[in-house]
Design a protein around this nucleic acid. Structure first.
Lengths: 328, 328
DNA sequence: TTGTATGCGTTATCAA
DNA sequence: TTGATAACGCATACAA
């Protein structure tokens, strides 16, 4: 391993000069040339351990994910990686696999590695790890949940409004019964989505007993079962609040032989993929995943550059693709 | 930041003792207790910069991905992350976004960060970065391509055999024409898959001119266009060598109103998802993605523990799900 | 078994 | 503008 000592020796200058050169200081033209040549000759590369030991910077940020299986998460991480690259920052990836009790350990792991910032996915306000975040001196960006700490930015989408809008439209189209496949009401995202649906029901004066809610667990399997249960009760109009469950729900529909847009009205949350390729294309709520990633990174560097900035909340709008899966 | 100096002072021992304690050495029971207490009291955490400066270890491995958008890649990275967690290792994530010319920079990035190992996805043998890998002193695991360097393990799947098997079956079922949607013959994975198909054609004595090949570019769009073109030429039996293109192909089929399993025979490479939920379920080749991730990590730690091991090639079998999309 | 002192590669302070 | 040198926090060789 080549050190700046060796570079200095070869260039005939002191280590101080080499260090300064490397950090963009101005020195005598002559010396800069010599140092550059020595660096090239020796193929010198800086030692980030030594650098970090002094500066406490790693030029990397930690990403704390809920899971890696979902399309949402993997798309987002892809976008984040791409943005980080422009800044020449690395990302240290961690997943707590939807298990809050793993979070503290993961959190420590990243803090021990002195990441310069932290992006965390779907951390709920009542989880124990939050206490740690509070007095963390690096910027934290929370994705998909709003966390009320001064050093935390929150980037969320308007799930409640989107769900409300789509359910209202369903009601206005004259459907008499509606089946909603929802997720456990522990996560705030799930709560928001269901709340939006119920607000629509209320505001439209739709009979509450005609809105049947089935609670799945995010799995494709429970989406399938939920759809079967609801169809057996004679319901033909559906809103599914999560992508993965919508896959299971669709599977049951396809197997049943019922036709979407004719026998069945269907809408759901979604990502690019199935909803586009089936015919008719599905009416869906689509989250601005890429935009969230871009925003998270931009904001991260704003805060790294300007440490006295404090946390804010940014709400991005979902897109609703009105297509042909709801019978009008 | 609490240092071992402070821990030593509080415990009334020397820094050496604290350091040894932290690294699992045996010392007087009494002292170990005192040190443990001091560490707890002060909430000491080790400084990985300082540690790395001495040991040149980071307790993290680098992952060099081709892209983050594909299901293959994101599933794999999820599995790798999970396995790494058991070893308390972090992963430094990087993507070269299918652009070989980005690779060298990404590679340097990881090497500069002193990752203890490297897992790389779909690196081709003729790419410039290979020269660097050759004299890298850390273990390298290549996923999906076989690289011939002594310090590189290769984990690949038997794409050629799987494709051959499935195309043979199609031919044996009596189909007179077959349309193949394939990818550019630059990547070795793509070459293997097409080669397998052509081997089947040859071995079965199927007329070569009745096997029509359409070259897409992995995009859903070209899958769609490919399917349209082939259907217009009257072909009704298809094999699509890549998941993403199969989505586009399916989209065209669904729009056309033709029925899979009746008017159309269809098989493709795939991941859990669409092929399961549509009806009839599709006959597909499914790669052992999770197993590949597990194997990559296991092998990585074998080699970290035992540095004199040299690279080997591991071939994992694809699974073929024989279902109802090919008319018999 | 323990303490002391040196060095890992870099940055930054102080003099020159 | 430059050089010499003292940190940064830890591991370890050597001495005790």
């Amino acid at each position: 391993m080549v050190t700046i000592q060796e570079v200095a020796a070869r260039a005939g200058v002191s280590v101080g000069s080499v260090s300064r050169y490397l950090n963009g200081h101005q020195l005598k033209e002559q010396n800069m040339k010599k140092i550059k040549k020595a660096i090239d000759d020796l193929d010198y590369r800086e030692n980030l351990f030594a650098k970090g030991l002094k500066s406490n910077q790693t030029l990397s940020i930690g990403v704390l994910m809920n899971n890696m299986q979902s399309v949402f998460s993997s798309t987002l991480i892809g976008q984040i990686e791409e943005e980080m690259d422009y800044h020449n920052y690395g990302i240290l990836l961690n997943s707590y696999r939807n298990r809050p009790e793993m979070l503290e350990q993961k959190f420590d792991f990243l803090v021990d590695r002195h990441v310069d910032g932290l992006i965390a996915f779907e951390i709920e306000n009542d989880w124990p790890v939050l206490a740690r975040m509070e007095n963390l001196e690096i910027p934290v960006i929370s994705i998909n949940t709003k966390l009320a700490y001064p050093n935390v930015d929150s980037i969320v989408v308007n799930n409640r409004e989107s769900t409300k809008k789509i359910v209202k439209r369903i009601i206005q189209a004259g459907h008499q019964q509606i089946g909603i496949i929802s997720a456990p009401q522990t996560a705030s995202v799930a709560k928001d989505r269901l709340a939006g649906a119920l607000e629509a029901v209320e505001e439209e004066g739709f009979p509450l007993e005609n809105a049947e809610i089935y609670y799945g667990d995010y799995s494709q399997k429970t989406g399938y079962e939920g759809m079967r249960a609801l169809i057996k009760r004679g319901i033909r109009t559906f809103f599914v609040t999560n992508y993965n469950m919508s896959l299971g729900a669709l599977q049951y529909i396809f197997e049943s032989g019922l036709k979407i847009g004719e026998d069945i009205s269907f809408a759901s949350y979604d990502y690019p993929g199935v909803s586009d390729i089936v015919y008719p294309q599905l009416t869906v709520v689509r989250q601005p995943v890429n935009q969230m990633g871009i925003m998270a990174v931009e904001r991260m560097f704003e805060r790294i550059r300007n440490p006295q900035l404090t946390g804010e909340t940014f709400v991005l709008p979902n897109e609703i693709l009105w297509r042909d899966s709801i019978k009008e």
